[in-house]
Design a protein around this nucleic acid. Sequence first.
DNA 1: CGATCCCGCCACATT
DNA 2: AATGTGGCGGGATCG
Length: 874
Amino acid sequence: ENILDRSRMAPKTPIKNDPVDLSKQKGCTPDRNPMTPVKLVDRPQADPWTPTANLKMLISAASPDMRDREKKKELFRPIENSEQNDIPDSLQYDMVDDGTVDEFEKQRPSRKQKSLGLLCQKFLARYPSYPLSTEKTTISLDEVASILGVGRRRIYDIVNVLESLHLVSRVAKNQYCWHGRHNLGQTLKMLQEAGELQYGELVTSQYKEQDTEYKSGDQKRETVPYSHDRPLLDFAEPDCTSASANSRKDKSLRIMSQKFVMLFLVSKTKIVTLDIAAKILIEENQDTVDYSKFKTKVRRLYDIANVLTSLRLIKKVHVTEERGRKPAFKWIGPVEFPGKTDEPRGHCPTSGPPAEAQRGACAPYQICAAGKQRFTRHASFNSTQPREGTKRKVSSEPSSPHRERQDEYCSKMINLATVCRQKIEEDTRNSSVTSHLSLLPVPGDSDFCVNPLSQAVFPVVQADMPNLLLPKGVSSQALHPPSAAASKTENGKPPLLPSQPFLCFPSSSFFMLCGGLQENVSRERGTDEKAFPPEAQGAVPPANCQKRSSHKCAPPSAPTDDEEPAAKKQTIEQGDVPLSLVIPKNPAESPKADPAPGSGCASAVHLEAFHLDLPSPAALETADKKSTKPLDSQEQEKWSQNKDPGEPSPGKDHISKENANQPFVPQYLYVQPAAGLSSFNFLFSANQAPSAIGLAASQLPSLSVPCVMVPSAALASFPLVCSPAIPSPLSPVPEGSSAAASMNISMSGLASTAPVFIGTTAVVTPNGSPSPSVDPQLTAHPAAHPRPVLARSCSAVNLDSPVCVGHPVTLLKLQQPSSTPVTPKSVRPARHEAFFKTPGSLGDPGAWKKNDGNQTRNGSSVQRRLEISSTSAD
DNA sequence: CGATCCCGCCACATT
DNA sequence: AATGTGGCGGGATCG
């Protein structure tokens, strides 16, 4: 076989001499060429293949050198090669050589031969992509390592990534269970949803801008705040039960992998540059993001990318930006996900692994479906979610270890979102630049140019769903119980949302929430929006819509621009969809009210609606798309799927969902603390009125948006929940914090109208100081939807509303009204995007470097402030 | 020279 | 303490 392949490939030269090349393909002669030897050429390899050679190989295989043998095996399927060809490389060679006798040395294969990507291919080749349900394959790490001839460490790299996608699950100590790709769709769906929440729109094309910034500017680097890393997503697995295991650090690789995938799923262009991804993923608090850290992150991303490439989910491309080309990866995997996929089983039956394993497997789906909703995950607290929400569960939850995670999780998400936003914003700004757009995506090729615009385009996302999603991951499992009760589960709709419009915020950071409304949008871009046909529609349903069905309500879409992605979209849609959401719950209810079980039901409904609706209501999508499309033609590819209005498909929606999400809601802007505000959090609701929401956009303009500030400290401990609906006073505020002051200012203006509601209730967690992390990093980003995540973790309630991301637009409004920007720089009126930017967006590495040492966390706070101010100055 | 990323030290977790 | 895991980053290769 090998031979064939090679020949096919046409190797360039058979020569061994060349080490490198040869190794790869070699091809010409099938014989063995040395793949390995390559570089050095140590040995020339020469052994021709002869029949004997095969024997030799066999022998060798038999012999201790399993590896070799292994290598050979792998041959069989060089995925890449077939596709692209090139990459392939090396696999083959080794075999050959080995075959020969000398094995030992054989020369060392070139580095490529040992690459993780290749190794991963080999690994994957060993297992069926779609194993029968019945079979459960267990994977022994040691065994595989020996077979593949690599160190165990490498296997972990692979397995961790695969695990993040639920292709495998850990069963026991050295054992993993192979699930195959059956659930991949679901997993991706989840990730997408989660990604939307978090990142929301952001993404898109970040690259460009960033670069610019980075380089130049920079000074600021922002990092994302977020303190801990925790697992963002772990959705599924985490289950509680065995959870213990999970704790580990964070398994950053797993988390990173998921986040990375999320970025792709959220991105319009489906292209993500490494640097951007790295920035986004550096959430941690670090203020300073050191350059080194960035570098390390990038390294990890390469590891992940290699695995994903082997899975054929992404491929390497180059994005040409102003600056130059940047390495990037393009998502080539499925974009839409039909409903779940599948099968439940998945896991390995293996012996009986802990339930957990199974659970884990299952979980994902559920998660998705179900929603997670519930706020907290811990059952311990109580089951009631609803209330809890109100209360906010605070959770301290000591009880569960997980909780922390969740929180963190949330926060991370938020951070990410922020970051993304920033980027986006930036991009937008910069956007002009790129002209590439057009280019874009060529599908096949590797290089493209991305266009900045595109980014803009992409929609924002919204949160609603996300919440669900997130939770699921996290909470779902963990939580399961409590709220779960009826409502959510079955459909998966989580209860939460609808009704309540609460938002939770992670403690650490603070956020601003702004509701963007259509209005805003329109204002800003009147053009885009222009039509809001949907509105009308949207309007209609509002109140009652809530129920799932309502979604459909969703309005059509209006075409909007992309530029501001989110904002617009949201706005647009919001009107429609959101309405329903809003209404639903009890609007007024305060936090407490939340949903009790009953409500839960409702909420559940909502969820469904969202989910389902979204999809179904193709309209929404359509709308969104439309809006978006224009901008992005480029992107089309991706979108195309969705596009059809008619289509209801559930699964696909992801995208649509986004849209959907957006629509409703409320918009809030979430600002992260980075700015230095750490002390407090702000929430703004654009629309707010809960009920209003339903209304169309008209309702509240930006001005109206209420803001709430919460002291961060407080928050830190607990999550805040806000319900837009409720009119409560905004200001509960706080406790004061000095920091607040600055912020406040702006806020104050805003506040008035708003119906924001904040409840802090519960919460409190023990975490300790999670928040502390504070991070200066980002300044404000708009995060968007904290809610979902938050909610879940926090327990807050859900948010139905929306979270949304702030679109730039929104901000603008806000700003305007307030005149002062709320956050530090974020506000840029100019673009929607701008809206919250953080001080620097991720800075460039260089910048980071600078910081290094000194700034550290502590300092950071200070810095932040400074930054903020500066920003604001801007 | 920048992009990749292998290798394996070493810390932390689990046994 | 042994062993499993996996973060991490030096520094080698690739292009």
